[in-house]
Structure formats: structure tokens, C-alpha cells
Nucleic acid binder design. Sequence first.
DNA 1: TTAATTTGTTAGATATATCTAACATTTTAA
DNA 2: TTAAAATGTTAGATATATCTAACAAATTAA
Lengths: 226, 226
Amino acid sequence: MLFLIENEGMGSLTEENYIKSVYALSQATGEVIVSELAKKLHVKPPTVNSMMKKLALKKWVLYAPYKGIKVTEKGKKEALSIIRRHRLAELFLVNVMKLGWEEVHDIAEQLEHVESSRFYDRIDEMLGYPKFDPHGEPIPDANGKILNDKRIPLNQAKENATVKIVAVADDKKSFLDHLNDKGLKIGEKVFVKRKEAYDGSVVLVNKSKVELMITHQVAERILVEE
Amino acid sequence: MLFLIENEGMGSLTEENYIKSVYALSQATGEVIVSELAKKLHVKPPTVNSMMKKLALKKWVLYAPYKGIKVTEKGKKEALSIIRRHRLAELFLVNVMKLGWEEVHDIAEQLEHVESSRFYDRIDEMLGYPKFDPHGEPIPDANGKILNDKRIPLNQAKENATVKIVAVADDKKSFLDHLNDKGLKIGEKVFVKRKEAYDGSVVLVNKSKVELMITHQVAERILVEE
DNA sequence: TTAATTTGTTAGATATATCTAACATTTTAA
DNA sequence: TTAAAATGTTAGATATATCTAACAAATTAA
Ligand SMILES: [Mn+2]
Ligand SMILES: [Mn+2]
Ligand SMILES: [Mn+2]
Ligand SMILES: [Mn+2]
């Protein structure tokens, strides 16, 4: 006889990574399609197909053949709990362990799967129940509530206006190394001097009156306010 | 065609756990046998058999049919590196994150597999390059050097002598909770009043002149000096 | 020293997570 | 509105890590 233990509520490391990506894509583009997920997770579409069937059984997603993927409330809660652990870990690595914001993401990808509420409760406490991670991303609270903000990508900011950098939409090392080189960081105010129509690049003036140019690729990953 | 990537030097989480156990058993009993490893890892003997074949291919162990398991220098180095990460993690959790010594082992079992030398170098640095973990176990240095000490289990200490508790040979929560109840901790000096011949229990007098009795099971897991 | 017991190995099955090849459906373009 | 392209699914294979059942070797007891 075969006993299938459903393991309600908990997920394998792989399942956790899938639901996190499903949630992230659903935030960006509404509907999630198999091929996008496959690209994001560096797997082939059939792999996504079978994993989505599995997550559908767990009620983390709704999945009908050829109809795309929708996250359920349950799946959203799961994703936010992982995102919370990821962002708390990143802030801990920067604020307590004094690592650079460009090197913490890969470590947090591992720490987010540590199973121990004591560990995360202490991190949260030591950091003073923080609201944002080192990249300016909001940290969901223990109930999965997350701040909904009105930040825009820098490439959508108006010309001849001063904006404040409040977050980055990418926390990979290569991108953050590039920002470090340009001297751009969270909290910094910059004046948007010109947006080139041809290639989407943006010319900024920083607080030391120095002019610098960033490409569209970079501008769309910098989130600003005002 | 099939390309087998040997993945030299690195090990999966499972392989890491096996070599750690092989090393631990080899320290305790010299020769490691399949059934002991199986018991320790809560798997069946055939599982150990096939994993040992795999580790033998990686040159972490020597393994001949019916001849038992021997750790190689390479395997020992691997094991000590994992033990180093485990013990650094435990001390970090106690000293920096202020968790109790009885609750850190299970978290360290997960943290020891985090792949990031930066993470462990910073922990080491923050702790001031410590020599012992919260349970008194020596922390191997980055080259795998580990202190070889002359501590003995409390049940082997002489009667009518004062000894200092320097380590515990078990860091599971149930055992440490028990020590917490008895008020016994690392650094504490106790007088060995009597060792019962019948059941191996030990009667101690603590520094407040209070008499307390511990069973053989507990005494053999407390390591003392002098 | 044979027989019983313990210990170890092989063979074959199961579960997870992945892949490729073939086929099906949906969307887009002619 | 068909044909082509893009996207998704199924079937079947591979790799890892585990198991049970059957058998083999070594150890221990009678
Ligand atoms: Mn991140
Ligand atoms: Mn982040
Ligand atoms: Mn431990
Ligand atoms: Mn320890």
C-alpha cells in the first residue's frame, strides 16, 4: 500500500523557488505564462508544466491546460513569506554583518529557505522590524502585508525634475556593481536633465553637480519618487 | 553523447552530511561500518552502500566490499570544513543573535550548507576568530587544523576531585534543556562527590555547595578537565 | 566447526526534478 | 481564413536519493 503524505503548508526548496517566481511574474505582468516562468527559472517548459500541476494540487496556483497560471491567496501567502525571509536576510547581511548590497542577494537566496521562525524573528527584532530591504524593496510583515507604493522607474520620470532614488528593481551583483561605479544609491536625489528619445538613455545631475549618463536598461531598474 | 561533470571538490547537501557523519564516527570508533552510519543518518544500509561507492569515486573515502569505510585526507578536509561552518554558525547564533545554546544546533545544520566564503569569513571575523563553539567543541581553522584536547567524560573523572566542565559531547535540544534545568554549563567547576557503581550515576557538588545527581547517560556527555 | 545471527551487497522499485522529442493548441501573419 | 510561428502538453528518459526483498559474506554462538 502507498501512503501519500500531503505535507500541507510546507514546500520543498524547489517548490518555494517556483512559487516565488510565479508571484513575482504575476506582479509584473498580471498573467503568468509557462514560457516566461521557464525562462526566469532556467528550466524547460515541460518542467514548469509538471511543477505547476504539483502546485495546483497544493492549491498554491490555479492551472488549466493552455490557460496560464494564476496564484491563489494561499500561494501568495507562501510567496510573501519567502520574500519576507529573503529581504530580512539581505538587510541583516548589510546592516549587521556589514556586507555590501551588491553581494547579499545570492546568500539570501540560500538563507530564505532556512526553516526556523526563531532565526527570522531574531533577525527582525535585531533590525528593529524594518520596512525596507537594502535595495529599497518593502519587507512583507509576518502576516504577509506589504506596502504598495507609488514609485516609478527612473526612465518614466519627468525631465527637468529632481527625484529621489528609493529602490532598485534588480539586486543582481552585476547591476549593483554598476550602480556603485556610477555612485548611485538609495536615498540619493538626482536631477533628470534629459531623456534621449533615440535610445532611451537618461542624463542625470547628481548632488555634486556632476553630470552622468545611464542607459535605458539601467534607468528602468532604478525606482524613484517625486 | 553523455558528459559526466565530476564537480570536483564540491558536494551536494547529502554528500556533505554523509562525509560529516563518516568523519564523526571515524573519530569515535576508528573504523566506520555501514550499519552504524545507516543508524546515525536514519537511512537503510543499501542507501549507505551506494552513497559510499559515490564518495569513494570522489576520493573522500576508501571503500572495499565487506571491509568497512575509511576517510581519506581529502574527505577529512571536506568534513572539517563543514564542521567549521557548523560551529561558527552555532557560536554566531549564540553570541551575536542571542539564541540559547540548546536551540542553535538545528539551525546550524542548515546554515552549514550555505555556500559563501564571504558569509563565513565575516562570521569568523565578527566573533574574533573563536576557538570553541557554544558547546565547548573546538572550531577547526580555515586550513582544517583542529585542537586535540585531553578532556574526559565526567563519568571517567576521579572521585573527590574538582573538575571544570569544558564541553558537551551532544548538542541536541533535549540534552541541553536537561543541563539548563540542572544549572550545569561550560566553564562551571564541580566537585565529584561519588560515582555509583551500580548504575553509573554521579553525585556532584556545585559551587553553591548544592548537591545534585546526574545519570550515567548525562555524565558521559559532559566533558571535563583537571 | 558447523549453524545461527549479524552485517553487507545487489537488484529492482519509488519519488523528485529535470531533460528531449513528438505532438497539440493557440496566436499571429500572409 | 488558411498557413506559419509560437506556445503548451504528453511521453518517455536520466540523475539523485531513497526504499524493500533477496542473497552473500563475516562474525558469533552452540
Ligand atoms: Mn534579493
Ligand atoms: Mn533585495
Ligand atoms: Mn551542533
Ligand atoms: Mn556544537
